[in-house]
Each structure stands twice: as structure tokens, then as C-alpha cells.
């Protein structure tokens, strides 16, 4: 037994040390660094809260951080809502031997040329872009539709979709769609099908069976999907830089500007630490809330 433990520890040591040296260490370093300040060309190593004071009081930083959370939150809800029916379909309506083929088809776009996929949305959303060409061809009165429904970007007509926060939401929802499907699919696969039959036998309709049995049992997968989309999208750089325009920039763009543009690395570090803190708090709150909700259910 003792020997087994030693062997396990020896095996786990290299990957663990690698993660500690290249992740835990650097994360600690960036926290320390955020308490230093940039003094023209040199770094002032006196510990101070000056960066945090500036980051929290400057309306620009605050607006960008809030916008990142707002955009990611929206993306997360849209992605998970769009993904759930797909995961449900693959789990419940696809022949078991074809399931992995379907998952493969769904995940392929996720692994291919992230940069170019984002750039192609720019092509699709641009003034002479694909979407506008289609709209012009089938003659959809976008402005009138916008005025009738009160949706701001529709009111602006054909030039509106690109370079806005809504373009970022659309593009990110597309980019992260496969990521949301997998955890929901796994949770749905684990559901014992006889429970559903039992519910039907006991007089539930298809709809109430779904709401009272399937959905609660799929909840862990949905929570995992929410987190797995929310966490990386908050820190996304490419999408806002490509399709966001000035009104769609997010925290990663500001961090990048601080590091590589304005040459104020400590401020960039502060913003990174703040973003990480907020994301961690939101993630923990989501897990806590999900546990509470599932605990209350009879």
C-alpha cells in the first residue's frame, strides 16, 4: 500500500510541479506585481494600492469591466439556451452508435482557426457583408422592423451589426457553442431512462416530465456549461478587437493595451487580478446558488 502511494506521488509530481511552476507561481507573481507601480521607464517596487484605487475609481476601467461581465453573461445565457436542445437531441433522439459522430461534427468548428472564424464574422456582418447582402436580396425592411420593435441596432439599419457590443455577443455565442453542448450532453447521458418512463406511467405529461425530471437531473451539466462558457469569454481578446469597435471593447483588450501599448504593465496586472477575482466570485456564487436550488427540490 505504502509502495502504491509512493508510485502515485512520483507519477503525479512532474505534471503537478509543472502546473505549480507555470500557473500557480505566475498567478502569485502577477498579484504581487499589481501592487507595484510604473514610474516612467522603471518599476517602483514599493507596495501600494494606487493601481487598485485608480482601476476602481476611473470610469473607463469600471465601464469596461462591467461591459465585459455584461457581454459574457449574455453570451453564456444565449449559448447555453441554444446548446441545450442540441445536447438533448443527440442524447435522446440519436442512435447510440451515431452519437460520437454527431459530437464530432459539432466540435469540429471549435478546433479550427479561431482567428479566422472571428474574422469571417466580420465579413458576414460588414456593410457589404453576407448578412446584409441576404437582407438586401430578400428585401427585409430592417429599419422599419427596428422602429417597430424598438431594437436599437436594427433601427440603424444595415451598417449597424458590425463594431458593436451586439456583434461581440453574436460572434462569441457562435465561437463557444460546442463548448456548452458537451457538459449538458454528458449530464443528459447519465439520466436513467427508466425514471422518465416511471414519470409517464405515474401520469405526468411529456412536458411536465421534462420540467420535473429531465431538467433537474440535467442541472449539473447546465451549471458546468454556464461556467465553461462564462469564464473564458470574460477574458476573450480577439472577438472584441475584431468586431467590437470602440463600444464593444472588453477587459482583455484593456489589459493588452496596458501591457503592450501604454507600457503600464502593473496597471495591466491589476486589471487582470480584478477580472480574475470577479470571475471567481461569480463562478462560486453560481455553484452555491445551483446547490441551494437543487437542495430545495423535493
Amino acid at each position: 500500500m505504502q509502495q502504491e502511494t509512493t508510485r502515485g506521488l512520483t507519477l503525479i509530481a512532474p505534471p503537478l510541479l509543472y502546473a505549480v511552476a507555470l500557473m500557480a507561481g505566475p498567478l502569485l507573481a502577477i498579484v504581487v506585481f499589481s501592487f507595484w507601480t510604473q514610474d516612467y521607464l522603471t518599476i517602483d517596487r514599493t507596495l501600494t494600492l494606487a493601481n487598485y484605487r485608480e482601476a476602481l475609481s476611473d470610469p473607463i476601467y469600471r465601464a469596461i469591466l462591467l461591459r465585459s461581465l455584461w457581454i459574457s453573461g449574455l453570451v453564456t445565457l444565449i449559448t447555453v439556451a441554444l446548446a441545450f436542445p442540441v445536447a438533448y437531441f443527440v442524447s435522446f433522439h440519436v442512435d447510440p452508435s451515431k452519437k460520437s459522430l454527431w459530437l464530432f461534427l459539432i466540435t469540429i468548428p471549435f478546433w479550427t482557426s479561431y482567428l479566422l472564424r472571428i474574422f469571417l464574422w466580420k465579413v458576414m456582418l460588414g456593410f457589404n457583408g453576407v448578412l446584409n447582402s441576404i437582407f438586401a436580396y430578400i428585401n427585409i425592411p430592417l429599419e422599419a422592423l427596428g422602429n417597430a420593435t424598438g431594437i436599437a441596432w436594427l433601427q440603424e439599419g444595415l451598417s449597424a451589426p458590425l463594431y458593436s457590443a451586439s456583434a461581440v455577443v453574436l460572434t462569441l455565442s457562435h465561437a463557444f457553442a460546442p463548448f456548452a453542448i458537451l457538459p449538458i450532453f454528458v449530464a443528459l447521458e447519465k439520466i436513467d431512462r427508466s425514471l422518465l418512463e416511471a414519470a409517464r406511467d405515474l401520469g405526468e405529461t411529456a412536458v411536465t416530465t421534462f420540467l420535473r425530471v429531465t431538467l433537474p437531473l440535467a442541472a449539473p451539466g447546465v451549471v458546468a456549461a454556464l461556467l465553461i462558457v462564462f469564464i473564458p469569454t470574460v477574458g476573450d481578446y480577439v472577438t472584441p478587437a475584431q468586431v467590437g469597435g470602440p463600444g464593444g471593447l472588453m477587459i482583455a483588450n484593456m489589459i493588452q493595451t496596458q501591457f503592450l501599448g501604454l507600457n503600464n504593465a502593473p496597471m495591466g496586472a491589476t486589471l487582470a487580478v480584478l477580472a480574475m477575482l470577479v470571475v471567481t466570485v461569480i463562478a462560486l456564487a453560481t455553484i452555491w446558488l445551483a446547490r441551494r436550488l437543487s437542495g430545495v427540490r423535493p
Binding site: A19, L22, M23, G25, P26, L27, A29, I30, F33, L227, I228, I231, P232, V234, G235, D236, Y237, A252, I255, Q256, F259, A265, G268, A269, A272, A275, M276, V279
Partner: peptide
């Protein structure tokens, strides 16, 4: 953990170190 860590965080923290 790196699976869910935003890549910008990995990038900046390593850059700092």
C-alpha cells in the same frame, strides 16, 4: 485548472514572470 483559466490571464502572468 488551465482548461478554464482565461488565456489572457495565462499570457499576462507568464509575461510578468
Amino acid at each position: 485548472i488551465p482548461l478554464v483559466l482565461p488565456e489572457i490571464i495565462v499570457a499576462t502572468s507568464l509575461l510578468v514572470v
